[in-house]
Design a protein around this nucleic acid. Structure first.
Lengths: 243, 243
DNA sequence: CACCTTAATGGTCACTCTGACTATAAAGGT
DNA sequence: ACCTTTATAGTCAGAGTGACCATTAAGGTG
C-alpha cells in the first residue's frame, strides 16, 4: 500500500468482494466437529460450507466475524464477544468463487460443546459435523478447515487455549481428551496431569468439587481455566510432528 | 461465505480496494532493518510507508506480493520467487486509509543483507531503515511492522528461518547475531553452538572453509543452511517471554 | 459381600536438554 | 613475548519428560 491510490480510478478495477469465513470448532463425543451450513443454491448446491458473509462498509473483518458468528449460532452477542476468535489467514485465489472475485478473511473460534446451534434466522441450518472424513466442501472451504485444524493443533501446544473447548468446570481427563482429539494421538495420563498442574495459572481447582466420569471409576476433581494464556515450556505433541 | 452472493447486488456495496503490504526485513550491522518507502503525497506525505500495492484482477494476494517485492527491490523475479514469503495477517479497519475503504493483506519476507534496493522504477525510493525506534509510519504500518517483528521472533524459535537472513555461507557467530538482533537479547555462544549443531539439518559445514570474523580472533568455520525446516525441540528465547 | 473392572491420582527412574561456567585454540595488536 | 579477541571444546547441576508401577475410589457381578 505504498501509494495505493496514486493512480486509482475506482472504476478501473472490477470490485473485489470481501467476506469473512468462520471455522468454528468444538469437541463432541471425543471427535472434533466444525460448524457447517448446507448450501441451498448454486454453486455447490447441497454441499457443506463454512458460515460467513460480507464485511459491511463500516465494519472491521473481526467485527463482521463476530456478527456472523452470533447470527449463525444464535448465541447472544455478549457471549460471542467474549469468545476467543483468531484470524487464520486470507484466501484470495482469483477463482475461488466462480461467480466473481471474492477475497475472504478466515477466522477460527473454539467453543465448548454447545447445546445445538439452532437459534434463529440463519442458525436454522447450521450443524456440527465431524471434522475427520468430511467430504468435499464448497469453494476452498476444505482447505480452510484443514488449515484451521493445523493452526489449532499448533496453538494448544504453546497456549492455554485448549480450555476454551471445555465447559466452565471440567476434569483433567476431559482436558486431556481435547488434546487427544485435536492431535489425534493418545497421551499418558499421569504425565499429562503432571504437566498441566505444573504450569502455573493453566487450571485452578474448583474447591472440593468432583464428578463421576461416566459412572465407572474414581470421581475426578474439577478444575476451571486459570488466568495464564501461554504455556512455558510448551506442551509438545508426541513425535514432534508439526502435521 | 456461506451464501456470499445470495442477495448480492454489485452496486449495493461500495467497492473495497484490496491491497498487499510487505514487511521485508534484513539484519544489517547487528540491527534489524525494514524496507520502507518515503511517501510523496498526501495522506502522510513525507512519512515512511511499507511497500505494496493493489492485487490485480487475476492475481492471488501472494502473487501480488511477489510482484510488488520484485518491483520495489529491483530483484529478479527468479530470486523473488525463491524467497520465503509468509502471510502475516489482514488489516481491515474501516478507517485505516482516510480516502476509501482499503483492506490489506500483509506479508513478511526475510532476506540477507542485500546490496542496496535501488534497482529501477519504484525501487528508486525504497530504503532500509532500522526497525528499532522508527517514528510514526503512514496508515497502520507501524502496527504491521510491530506484528511482523513479533511473528519473526516467534518463528525462528520453531523453524530454521533464521538462516534466510544470512548469506549462502555464514559463521555460527553470524547466525547467532541474527537471533540476538531479532530477539534483542544476548545468547551464550557455546550453548547456541551446541544447540544448532545438535539439530540435524539446520546447518551443514562448508568443507574446510573458514573466515576471519573482522580481523580479530580465531577464524570461524563456514556453514550453509541445511534441508531442515523445523526445529525440534525449539530454540526458545531466554525468559520465555512471548513478547 | 468379596472380588473384578475402571478411571483418577501419586510416585519413581532414567534420559535429554539447557543454563552457567571453565578451558583451550588461533588469530591480530602492542 | 604478552594481551585481547573470537571460536571451539567440555563439565556439571537442575529442569523437564517419557515410560512405568502403585494406590485410591468408584461401579458392576457372581
Amino acid at each position: 500500500m505504498s501509494d495505493p491510490l496514486k493512480d486509482y480510478d475506482p472504476h478501473a478495477f472490477e470490485p473485489f468482494a470481501v467476506t469473512v469465513d468462520l471455522a468454528v470448532f468444538t469437541v463432541r463425543e471425543g471427535r472434533l466437529h466444525v460448524l457447517l451450513i448446507r448450501r441451498g443454491q448454486d454453486p455447490y448446491e447441497g454441499s457443506w460450507a463454512l458460515p460467513g458473509g460480507f464485511i459491511l462498509p463500516r465494519e472491521s473483518a473481526e467485527e463482521a466475524a463476530r456478527r456472523e458468528l452470533a447470527e449463525e449460532t444464535g448465541l447472544s452477542e455478549a457471549v460471542v464477544d467474549s469468545l476467543h476468535l483468531e484470524q487464520l489467514r486470507t484466501y484470495s485465489g482469483p477463482d475461488r468463487d466462480p461467480r466473481m472475485r471474492v477475497v475472504s478473511v478466515a477466522y477460527t473460534a473454539l467453543v465448548p460443546d454447545l447445546p445445538e446451534p439452532h437459534g434463529g434466522g440463519d442458525a436454522a441450518h447450521a450443524e456440527w459435523v465431524a471434522a475427520d472424513g468430511l467430504g468435499e466442501l464448497a469453494f476452498d472451504h476444505g482447505q480452510i478447515v484443514a488449515d484451521a485444524h493445523d493452526r489449532i493443533g499448533a496453538r494448544i501446544e504453546y497456549t492455554c487455549l485448549a480450555t476454551t473447548f471445555c465447559p466452565t468446570a471440567f476434569t483433567l481427563g476431559e482436558l486431556q481428551q481435547v488434546y487427544e482429539t485435536v492431535w489425534g494421538t493418545v497421551l499418558d495420563r499421569p504425565n499429562f496431569r503432571r504437566k498441566v498442574l505444573a504450569t502455573p495459572g493453566f487450571v485452578e481447582p474448583v474447591a472440593g468439587a468432583s464428578r463421576l466420569t461416566g459412572g465407572r471409576g474414581k470421581p475426578a476433581s474439577l478444575y476451571r481455566a486459570g488466568p495464564a494464556t501461554a504455556l512455558h515450556p510448551p506442551l509438545l505433541r508426541p513425535e514432534g510432528r508439526t502435521a
